[in-house]
Design a protein around this nucleic acid. Structure first.
Lengths: 224, 224
DNA sequence: TTTCGTATACCTAGTGGTGGGTATCTATTG
DNA sequence: CAATAGATACCCACCACTAGGTATACGAAA
């Protein structure tokens, strides 16, 4: 809809001076410095601003426009997912690429559902990032090789068997905070029996056999 | 001892063409690319080689010489600590700077004991890295601000209370693999009582009160 | 409307972990 | 040599967690 505006002018489209503006978000300044410097050599892109937290990024978005946001997933204050959802409402036409060190299937899936346009890993090269930038500008999606492999593997799995209900997640979080079933019962104003039932259901759903497996599941699914 | 050789020649010292060679080690290629590019602008340093694993770094050291190694702490195959110890025996005169995302007191202390010359965080700027490089070349040590604050805080604490013995770590790892005390006893050919005693000692040392705290400790200390 | 999922709650039994001890043997270190 | 730290092992009591059940109430979906 609104994306057509520049397309009506056949000249601006090809002008080599028109660089796509990037907002780069990562709490590691040294990476910020490095990537910005690398992209300075590009004719097509330029890092217009950088931010080291989700909050800072959102504030920049309120007073500026960007063609693409490249962001880490692990961020202080806001998580990457929260940032992406917020960004989507502030600048709906902006493309979003996640640059993360994690190749966790659950995270990737969730982010793709949230509407990101690319996902690359920090272990990928600078060239991969540039490829991704070009691809998303052309209204296509880009996934790093490892991530697409991951998604293919995931497709083989029958169905996500282990989706916890909100109540179960709530219980699991409290378990992970070192509360006993009794304490959880007191906190939630429910019977200890109910907590035990929830725990049993969680164990069954996650396939864990004891507390240890539960905590590892919680870590793997970013519940902690 | 051998470090005096260049010092005897007053000219080579100031020659602008003589750049200090750096070996850069990090499993994130995009950071590697970025930092290398940034340092290319420097008159004093140049990234001679890069490696994405400890093994690769060691192989490079066997056939090349470097003035400084800048390495991540979290590495595939070898840990940063192992790499540093190995590097020390291969190239004893090389300076070593750790560039990590973690500000874990225990890790920092251990690395300093292992003989590194600098410790900076990924959240630090490019300038900080350059400062560190200059400092270690001048035979001084460099710690990022946050790290020195950390060491000062640590000095207040009476003594490191929570250092697990190798056997305790071994037990903890097995606990984290969802083995019960009985199973661990069978695996290690020791009595279940002994395992229980170790577990109790681990709980006391880590300050945890139950399994959950134990697993979280294991995660926090990269034992999993 | 009936079925399904979710949250609630209880029962019994059995297993496993926690917390308080004590004690022996070995190796290292002041 | 004596002291210390680490690994080993046992005792008892208590509590928490796990593993089978069953059952009710509610709201949403088929």
């Amino acid at each position: 809809m609104s994306g057509k505006s520049w397309f009506t002018n056949p000249f601006s489209n090809r002008a080599s001076m028109l660089k796509r503006s990037i907002l780069l978000v990562d709490d590691h300044r040294i990476l910020l410095d490095g990537v910005k410097n690398l992209l300075a050599e590009s004719n097509d892109f330029e890092v217009k601003d950088t931010a080291t937290s989700g909050k800072e990024a959102l504030q920049l978005m309120k007073s500026n426009e960007y063609d693409i946001m490249v962001t880490d997933y692990e961020l202080p204050e806001l998580t990457g997912l929260e940032l992406i959802r917020a960004a989507k409402s502030v600048l709906p036409d902006m493309k979003m690429i996640v640059l993360s060190m994690h190749d966790d299937p659950a995270v990737v899936k969730e982010l793709l559902r949230a509407g990101i346009h690319g996902y690359i890993l920090k272990k990928d090269t600078h060239k991969t990032l540039v490829d991704a930038l070009h691809k998303v500008i052309a209204n296509r999606r880009f996934l790093s090789d490892e991530i697409s492999d991951l998604l293919i593997q995931m497709a083989d799995e029958p169905e996500e068997k282990g989706v916890l209900t909100t109540r179960e997640v709530e219980i699991l979080r409290l378990v992970a905070k070192e509360f006993s079933s009794r304490q959880i019962a007191e906190i939630l104003f429910i019977s200890e029996r109910t907590v035990e039932t929830h725990r049993k259901n969680i164990l069954k759903k996650t396939g864990a056999t004891n507390l240890v497996g539960l905590i590892k599941y919680a870590y793997a699914n970013n519940l902690i």
